[in-house]
Amino acid sequence: MIGVHDGLNSPRKESGTEDTSPFPSKYLMRNTRVLRVVKAQIKEVPMEVLEAAQQELVNIVNLGNNQLREIPKDMILLNEHLTQLILSRNQISFVPTNISQYSKLEVLNLSSNLLCELPMELGGLHLLRELDISHNRFHHLPACIYELSQLESLVAHDNNIKSVDASDLGLGGMPELLILNLNNNDINVVPPILGNMPKLKSLELWGNPFRQPRHQILSMGTPAVLSYLRTRIPI
């Protein structure tokens, strides 16, 4: 995924004393502007940690590979500065409607959770460039995604997606899209109009039950796939 940063490894000792908390100190957050807690089995983030992160102008949060069941409610304290939010490999089953308040968010990673829908309010993230919803339970691409006009990378592999909307109200209305990964879904038909997407550089479709384009075309790479799809557009 383009440009995703997960922060820096944080030391566990300060001033000669050992700190058993998995959360970084305010001093580390001040120096890095990163709140990074991964593989720590945490189920929540204390409010005082997020208050400290707010004070230190943290703009990157990585809480990947934990046991979160929801996006921490007090995370909203960071909404004015947050540009990257990584919540992969948790147990999150819904995204709250206040996600739209993270107005500066550019990167959102929700992969490997329990999601089957996203709120329409997510479409209000007008600066979002990268969205990863892979390894979830989606049966379709949520409609809010089509509102993300600046999105450059959409990673949605390993879901249960059965079809995609490639019209001007769907993917066809996303002029900045460079990367589209739909591997390992349940797509039966690839819309030929995908071939007309102006900036698409990487289209991944392996592991779906459609018959066309055939594997030999897929193996030739994205330019060949897009060229083939254009030949299938009805005149």
Score class of each variant (00 low, 15 high):
3 G>T: 13
5 H>R: 13
8 L>I: 09
11 P>R: 09
15 S>M: 09
16 G>M: 10
17 T>I: 15
22 P>C: 10
22 P>E: 08
25 S>E: 06
29 M>T: 08
29 M>N: 04
30 R>E: 15
32 T>L: 02
35 L>I: 04
37 V>T: 14
38 V>H: 03
39 K>F: 08
42 I>N: 11
48 E>M: 02
48 E>G: 00
49 V>Y: 02
49 V>C: 06
52 A>L: 00
56 E>R: 12
57 L>R: 14
64 G>P: 07
64 G>R: 11
64 G>C: 14
66 N>G: 10
69 R>T: 15
71 I>D: 07
71 I>V: 15
74 D>V: 01
74 D>Y: 06
74 D>T: 09
76 I>S: 09
77 L>N: 07
77 L>Y: 13
79 N>Y: 02
80 E>K: 14
81 H>I: 00
89 R>Y: 13
90 N>D: 10
90 N>V: 10
92 I>K: 04
95 V>H: 06
102 Y>Q: 02
102 Y>C: 02
104 K>W: 02
105 L>C: 06
106 E>G: 11
106 E>P: 01
106 E>L: 08
109 N>G: 03
112 S>R: 15
124 G>C: 13
127 L>I: 01
127 L>D: 15
134 S>H: 05
135 H>Y: 14
137 R>G: 08
138 F>S: 10
138 F>Q: 06
139 H>S: 14
139 H>P: 00
140 H>P: 00
141 L>M: 03
142 P>D: 03
147 E>K: 14
152 E>I: 03
156 A>W: 06
158 D>L: 08
163 S>F: 04
165 D>E: 10
168 D>M: 09
168 D>W: 02
168 D>N: 11
178 L>S: 05
183 N>S: 13
186 D>I: 01
186 D>G: 00
188 N>K: 14
189 V>T: 12
189 V>W: 08
191 P>C: 04
198 P>Y: 05
200 L>F: 10
206 W>V: 05
206 W>T: 10
207 G>E: 08
208 N>L: 02
212 Q>F: 12
212 Q>Y: 13
214 R>P: 03
215 H>Y: 06
218 L>G: 02
222 T>M: 07
223 P>N: 08
229 L>T: 03
234 P>T: 11
